[in-house]
């Protein structure tokens, strides 16, 4: 349906399937108390999936940038200050790292890893507009679907434009130092075009939408139909059942 597909076959899946699988992984990681389960999920499910789609590197990159620093902080803080600490794992002078604290930090870190890696696969292989379209096809009102897609697509675009303005102002000799007043005065020419262009953009786009019958009261049709193979529906059901089973296990066993 779309050209330039990152993520190979993963790209062509129904976004709802990818969303369900990602959510199932995350819920499983949170419902099952052993970090080994989460680690197993990562190594046996998420990693192979990313390899299959050819997006392992960006996925690992996201994990490294988001999970690694958090894990470092967690290990130090929980290791030192875990309230129920009883077994010393490591002594460094007056500092004691508690085993229970380290284990707890490990568990949280692994869950974070699942969250970030699962979502990075979803986002790397799914254009926001396609996700919104799939949600609309599944029954989300068209207005919500539009707002979701437009927000996800326009915000990065608007940021890009703001950076262009910043560059232009710098080139014209914008200085960002000196007294508070001087700095405020310097930043003003930067902020004004940014705000005003955002406002105009909102108004012009509102008119453009109006001209194209947005929210005309008719039930909208869609140009593309997002494919939804029977296998994908089965996978989504399986995800639901797995999460349900994990929930029951967590509550009663």
């Amino acid at each position: 349906m779309f050209d330039a597909a990152p993520g190979g076959w993963l790209y062509h899946l129904n976004p709802l399937t990818k969303l369900s699988v990602s959510l199932a992984f995350i819920l499983l990681a949170f419902l099952l108390p052993s970090p080994l389960v989460s680690l197993g999920l990562f190594c046996l499910a998420i990693l192979p999936l990313s390899l299959w789609g050819g997006i392992t590197l960006p996925m690992l990159n996201a994990c490294l940038r988001l999970v690694a620093p958090a894990a470092g902080v967690l290990l130090v803080v929980q290791g030192l200050f875990y309230p129920g600490g009883q077994t010393a794992a490591l002594r460094a002078g007056p500092l004691v790292f508690w085993q229970e604290g380290l284990a707890y930090a490990g568990l949280i870190s692994v869950r974070l890893l699942i969250m970030v890696s699962a979502f990075s696969i979803l986002l790397a292989t799914t254009p926001p507009a396609k996700l919104a379209m799939a949600l609309q096809q599944a029954g989300l009102p068209a207005t919500f679907a539009y707002v979701l897609a437009a927000a996800l697509q326009l915000l990065p675009e608007a940021r890009q434009r703001a950076l262009v303005i910043l560059k232009a102002q710098r080139a014209r000799g914008l200085r960002v130092s000196g007294s508070l007043l001087a700095r405020a005065r310097a930043v003003l020419p930067l902020v004004v075009p940014m705000i005003s262009s955002t406002l105009v953009m909102a108004e012009e786009r509102a008119v453009a939408l109006e001209l194209r019958a947005f929210r005309s009261g008719v039930k909208p049709t869609t140009y593309y139909e997002i494919e939804d193979a029977g296998v994908e529906r089965t996978v989504r059901w399986l995800c639901g059942l797995l999460v349900l089973a994990a929930g029951i296990y967590r509550l009663w066993l």
């Binding site: 779309f2 254009p127 926001p128 507009a129 396609k130 919104a132 379209m133 068209a142 679907a145 539009y146 707002v147 897609a149 437009a150 697509q153 326009l154 675009e157 786009r205 453009a208 939408l209 001209l211 194209r212 019958a213 947005f214 929210r215 005309s216 008719v218 039930k219 909208p220 049709t221 869609t222 140009y223 593309y224």
Partner: peptide, 19 residues
């Protein structure tokens, strides 16, 4: 519109809204 991913859909947007 910002809510569509391809040029074809973007052009179709008004027709979609008219059903």
């Amino acid at each position: 519109s910002g809510g569509r991913f391809t040029v074809a859909e973007e052009v179709a947007f008004g027709l979609e809204n008219l059903g």
